[in-house]
Every structure is written in C-alpha cells, then in structure tokens.
Design a protein around this nucleic acid. Structure first.
Lengths: 342, 342
DNA sequence: TTGTAGGCGTTATCAT
DNA sequence: ATGATAACGCCTACAA
C-alpha cells in the first residue's frame, strides 16, 4: 500500500491534474512563474498532500546550481573559526543557501583535497581562509570558474576577492603600544607560522615595529606554539627559562596569551605590573577574565558574515569590491602597563 | 579556443578513444570495475589532461546518493559543538563524505527549516543534537527514510539511534560530590532549559540529588542564563544578591562556571575556600585556568566522531547498536572543597 | 496560462 | 572487457 518511493514532481502534477511543467512553475520558490493563483494553490495542496520533497540533485543538474556554498576552514574548534562558521552559516541560511563545510588541521594537502571535494559536490562558490594554498588549490579554484573568497587575510597582490585585515599592521600597532609604554625587552609567543599567513604576519609585525625603533628580536625570545592555552603556558615557561629578562609578551592569539597569563599567575608574576601581555583575536574570553586582556579585536563573525554576503551578491551578478578590509582595533584592557621602574 | 564549458565524461571518453561507459568504469573510485589496466590508465590520463571534474549532481541523480551528511547543530560557536563539528567533519572526510552544516540558535523552527533544507539537498544521513524537536521535524525525518542520529543526549524511549550521555545522571553525580563535601546550601546557574533537554536534565539532576538527601532547591537559588562567561558572571552576582548564603554552585556548563569563578574573584570570594564551583562539559579552558575547574567531562569530539562513524556504518548496511552511551566522568580539580567551618 | 519535449552528466543494465 | 542505451527527476525554451 505504501508508495514505491518518494513522490516526484510527476506525481504531484498528476494529482493536481496539470502538466509537469506547470507543477514545476507553481512550486518554484522564486519567480512568479506565470501560473494562475488557483492552479498554484491546487498544485501546492497536492504537494503537501503527497509529502513531496524536491530532489536536489535533479534540480541541480537542470539548473546547474546547488544553492550550496563550500567553506574550507582550519580547525573549526578554534573559537575564531567557530564563530566565523556560525556567522557564515546563518548568513547563508537566510538566503536559502546551505553550508558545505570541510575543516582541516592546517594541512595544505587536506585543504586541497577538501577544496576539490567541495567543487565536485557542486558548491556554487567557495570560502577559504588565508592566502597560503598549494598551487594546485589555486589552479583548481581557477579551473572551477566558481566565485571564491579568501578570508581573514588581505591579498597584497590585489588579484583575489578577499575580506580580512592586515595582521601585520595590527601586530605593529599592538607592539607599538608596548613600546610606547616603555617596554624594550619583548618576547613573542607566535602561533605556528607554517602554512599560516596570519601567524606569520603577526610575527613579522612585531619584528617590524621593533626594528623601526632600532630594536631587535633575538631568536631565543620567540617561540612558536600551536594555538591553545596549554601551549601558551608551556611557551611562557620556556621563554622564562631560555631568555629571561623580558617585560612584555606579544602572543599570536588570545589562547596563547591567556595561557601565558595563567602561567604568570601560577609563578607569582603579576600582570601587568611585572609582565605585560598582548593577545590577538579578542575572543569572548579576553574580556571575561578578571584581568581583561589587551588584544587586537578581530571581528571573526563579521568576516564570516561578510564573506557569505559578498559571495551571495556575486552570485546574483552584482559587483563587489575586490577587497573588504575590516576594522581590527587594539582593545586596551588590563594586561598591559609600563614596565616596573618607569 | 577555450572549451565551451567544463569537459564532461563524454569528452574524456572520446579523448581516450573509449565509450562513455568504459570511461565511467575506469574512473570509478570504488569497484575494480572490470576495465583493463591499460584502458584505465589511458582514461585517467585523458581525464587529468582535460582537467575533468565529475559532476556531483549528475552522479547523485544516477546513484541516488550524494556522499554528503547533514548536521543540524545549535550554535557552533559554542566550544562544545565546535569540537563536535570538527571531529565529525574529520571523520566524514576520511571516508570520502562531506559535511552539510546548518546551525541555529536553539530555535526549533529554524531547526526544522534547516533539517528540511538538508534533506532536499540530498544528504545521505542526518545528525541532530538532543531529542527536543518539533513534531514536524520528527515527521520529516521519518518520511525522508534517511538514517539519522541524535547526539549528546540519550533517547529514553529507545526508539531512535543516538550517541550521548545521561545529563541527569552526570548532574546527580556532580551534585553528590558537593553534598559529600558537606555543602547543603547550593545554588544553580542553569543554561536555558527551553528547547534544550541537556540543560533541563542537568538542572533536574541537581534537584534529584538534593531531594535524595532531603534537601530542596529554592527557586531563588536557580537562575537560567545563556551559555557564556559574561552571563555566568552576571548570574552569580544576581544569586548573591537575591539569595545569599550558599556555599556551592552547580553551573549548566563550563562557560557559566568560569563566569561565576571570575565574578567570585573580582568580589574577593575565594574559590574553593568560600565558594565551590562545578561545571559541565570540560572544555579546554576548564583545565587551563590557574584554578582548575571541577567539571563533568563530556567527550564532545568523541560524540561527533562516533555519530559520524555510526552513520557511515549504517550507510554501508552494517548493523549498529541503537544507543551508544559515552563516558562522562566527574573530573575533580581545584574548584571544589568542603565549605568553611567543616 | 498551460503543455510538449529536449537536455542536464552519470551510472547501470544488458548485450556483445 | 567494452559498448549502446535507458534511466535518474527536474527545468525551460518553445509551442499552443
């Protein structure tokens, strides 16, 4: 007695006593699709009656679009990408699009595989993070002919659409803040710079700011660590051991900075009196702890939202500026102060 | 000179001098697909030569599967769901599947819409969180005929496939820990229980544990708040104002507990000497702060991973136990102790 | 306004 | 082992 399989458009059409074409037009969400109100109503009724669910693949094959947007992200359990993902998904949903998500662990090869997978899956457009990708990834993107958007970073070459910020400039600003406070002995807990332009720019920003004032950054004063609180603790401990004497730390992101803060506390080093700390990202946590973290505010939700919005516009054929630079101001809280004795 | 559009299988076949059928078999990833090694190689060469990319929609239409799995999640910027999402995506990618992700803000109506969208998009299976859903959502799931999995919670009715834990039992355990330490005046900062069985169970677990020892939980000692550190601070402040005298707090999750801890510190209330705190989830942060948070360890990555793995197995036709209960032990750290004067 | 019919790119069945 | 060819379910000129 049960229907052999799911009802299809032909069933709806038959049940409503119209042709398949008319049924299609009546159900088409967009387009008034010239159909008399009465017919449309009849078709709709038949559709719900039968529990009709359009077959996405068939539709995609015919229209050559899936109403799906692919995102290839670094670990989405990083708070920054988590909020970007959420914002992106929300933005897309509001426009009737769905997110095809692939996340990798900062591995360019997996990123390429994921990118290809999303293209094959028929994503109408793609979002990637940063500008460091394999040549094959760039090639795949180009061959696909799909609109794509790079996020978080800006494209110095001006060739690609992107929404993000200059991590270097922001980092310079943060470092200058420390210099202005009177610090000259500065250490860096950088994120891993391999395959990560954000981390790399942030690190070189510190160098630039220092050398602009005639200061150098000794190798022993720099440690690269995976982005996590635990690693931040470890890194600070190691810095203290291998190159003590610094009065301030610039961290590659807030997790690392918070880890450093925790380590300071456990060692009885008071922040900011004895140690100033600057983070990056401004995750919720930065403002939630008792000692507010001075950090560069990176509007990750906005980046996700705008990335989606820009892509959606381009899909509609509207023109969009190639680059959108978001504001990333330094937020002064309680973790920075002049070094002791000044 | 440029090819009119993307090369398709027919182009590859022609270029390799074989029929479309043979080309298809040669490129088929699975299945030895009886093709002579030599032919296969020739076809493959032609494919890369032309930059052939299979058309997912066409394939999906023919095979009736998209190799895509849909997930409808609460805010993925919640650390718990972020790590679940990441683990799920990784698990799927390893099997050649891709994640179709929709996230909502604890809104059942959006959840329904998202669920329908994913079904229409052709997801081969679905993952949802918890068991509180609209009847229409359950109906859509059933009609779709797709395998689906509920996560984080367990299904008391035993009707649905699920992987998760009993939040009630875990909460009872956490509360008993406080009672065993000698606390009798306990307050609760619950997550919002509306449309959230996890939050609700956690709250009622506290009640159950208390009443098992003949204690009651006054309404003034309970506050519901959105899951965030800031809200945790606020909630503790409010509890202190409206119903002081408690010596311990059970929080609906770690963010709320950490917020409470921060508020304590800023008020000079020492933890755990003057106030014991118990969280839920065991996010990274719980173990990273100087005062380690005693909390229920919820293995969110494992839940995501197993959810995916179970679905994948079912898609392969293997049989899978209807329910998988994951371990959620109480992790004792530094935020709980006997109340003063005991 | 409605119907007819061709096409979208693959896979799968059935011969050969 | 390889080749025709019929689905797969929907959209969309084009015709009526």
């Amino acid at each position: 007695m049960e229907p052999r399989s799911h009802p299809r458009l032909a069933d709806v059409a038959r049940s409503a006593g119209v042709s398949i074409a008319t049924a299609s037009r009546a159900l088409s969400f967009f387009e008034p699709g010239q159909v008399s109100d009465e017919t449309r109503e009849r078709v709709r009724q038949a559709a719900v009656m039968l529990g009709y669910v359009p077959h996405g693949a068939a539709r995609a094959l015919a229209t050559r679009q899936t109403r799906t947007i692919g995102a290839v992200f670094p670990p989405v359990d990083n708070p920054v990408f988590a909020s970007g993902t959420h914002a992106l998904a929300q933005e897309l949903a509001a426009a009737g699009y769905t997110l095809l998500l692939a996340s990798h662990d900062y591995d360019l090869q997996s990123e390429l595989a994921a990118t290809r997978a999303l293209i094959e899956r028929g994503a109408d457009a793609l979002v990637l993070v940063g500008l460091v990708h394999l040549p094959e990834t760039y090639a795949a993107l180009a061959r696909s002919g799909l609109p794509y958007e790079f996020t978080w970073s800006l494209d110095a070459s001006g060739q690609h659409h992107c929404v993000g910020l200059s991590h270097r400039s922001a980092s310079i600003g943060a470092t200058q803040h420390l210099l202005d406070l009177g610090h000259s002995e500065i250490a860096v807990i950088a994120g891993q710079t391999k395959n990560n332009d954000r981390a790399l720019e942030r690190l070189s920003g510190v160098r630039d700011a220092l050398s602009a004032r005639g200061l150098r950054l000794p190798a022993a004063r720099v440690i690269e660590a995976p982005f996590s609180i635990a690693e931040g603790r470890r890194a600070l401990a190691q810095l203290l051991e291998q190159a003590p004497g610094f009065t301030a730390v610039v961290a590659g992101n807030d997790l690392l900075a918070i880890g450093a803060a925790v380590e300071c506390r456990s060692r009885g080093i008071t922040v900011p009196a004895e140690m100033s700390l600057v983070g990056f990202d401004d995750i919720d946590l930065a403002d939630a702890l008792d000692i507010g973290l001075t950090t560069v505010h990176v509007p990750s939700a906005q980046i996700g939202r705008e990335g989606g919005r820009r892509l959606l516009r381009r899909l509609r054929g509207e023109s969009v500026a190639r680059e959108l630079e978001v504001e990333a101001p330094l937020v002064l809280r309680d973790s920075t102060a002049s070094p002791r004795g000044r």
